[in-house]
């Protein structure tokens, strides 16, 4: 079964009705890593938000199936419990809630939903310790309030840590590389790579080839003005890096979903 199957997805801003996503078709099979690129404002984060259930958007057409279930009908927290994870482009600071407490609450909520036993404090700390090593996260950050006063890079690493702890089936990483220095990028990427296991699907949103040198994608898609205008393999990203988006925007946006489908099958 496909992990995620998006067809003809249209979505608008609830407040003013502006259409941002104008017919997205995208299929992710278990184990695949898809990179999503595209100019600023093309709708990459909007797609990530709509998939994760953020309020403020209206889906006007199309659908998204997650493991065959209607993803868009689920409240955000159910999507998370079912295994969809969004690493935020701009992680939110939550003063007064310790990172560790927050993660334990989250992991146990998710485990309960999946019919697994909740982790006690000792088992949880062991899990956290293991995953924190993966992203080289210092203990001090675990005891601090969620993201409060974290540097940009620390916030992004915290997102990867949460992903590792929550063990999602589909991870959407929205510019997890932006704001990371070269070493941090390598660490975060190797954290992500460690989670590639042949079953987990990933949608990696990025502007830079640099990340894709580490996380080598199976497919690359280019989003422009709310549509996927080109899909290809990892070489597409390299071509984009060399030629810029104008190269694609000049091409006719034909048979996009067919192309993606052809590569996927």
């Amino acid at each position: 079964m496909n992990l995620l199957e998006i067809s003809n997805l249209h979505a608008s801003i609830e407040e003013d009705g502006t259409e941002i996503l104008k017919g997205i078709d995208l299929t992710i099979c278990p184990g695949e890593v898809h990179a999503l690129m595209g100019p600023n404002g093309s709708g990459k984060s909007t797609l990530a938000h709509v998939l994760s259930g953020r309020p403020g958007y209206v889906v006007t057409q199309g659908r998204a199936l997650f493991q065959g279930k209607d993803l868009l009908a689920m409240p955000a927290e159910i999507r998370a419990r079912e295994g969809v994870f969004l690493a935020f482009q701009y992680p939110v600071e939550i003063p007064g809630v310790s990172n560790t407490y927050f993660l334990r609450t989250a992991v146990n909520t998710v485990r309960k939903h999946r019919g697994q036993l909740e982790l006690d404090a000792i088992d949880f700390l062991a899990l956290l310790d293991e995953k924190a090593k993966l992203v080289e996260m210092e203990e001090a950050l675990l005891n601090r309030s969620v993201n409060e006063g974290f540097s940009g890079g620390e916030k992004k690493r915290n997102e990867v840590l949460q992903m590792a702890v929550l063990d999602p089936k589909l991870a959407i990483l929205d510019e997890t590389d932006s704001g990371l220095d070269i070493d941090a990028l390598r660490v975060a990427a190797s954290g992500v790579n460690a989670l590639r296991d042949g079953a987990r699907g990933m949608l990696v949103i990025t502007h830079y080839q640099r990340l894709l040198d580490y996380i080598i994608p199976d497919f690359v898609h280019v989003l422009s003005d709310g549509r996927i205008v080109k899909s290809g393999d990892k070489n597409l990203a390299k071509e984009l890096e060399a030629k810029g988006y104008s190269w694609i925007e000049k091409e006719p946006p034909a048979t996009v979903s067919a192309a993606a489908g052809a590569i996927a099958s």
Partner: peptide
């Protein structure tokens, strides 16, 4: 609202 959504995106119910 952003904080509420952030927590929900990690599986917490809106009430929690």
């Amino acid at each position: 609202a952003d904080a509420v959504f952030y927590l929900r995106s990690r599986g917490l119910s809106p009430e929690a």
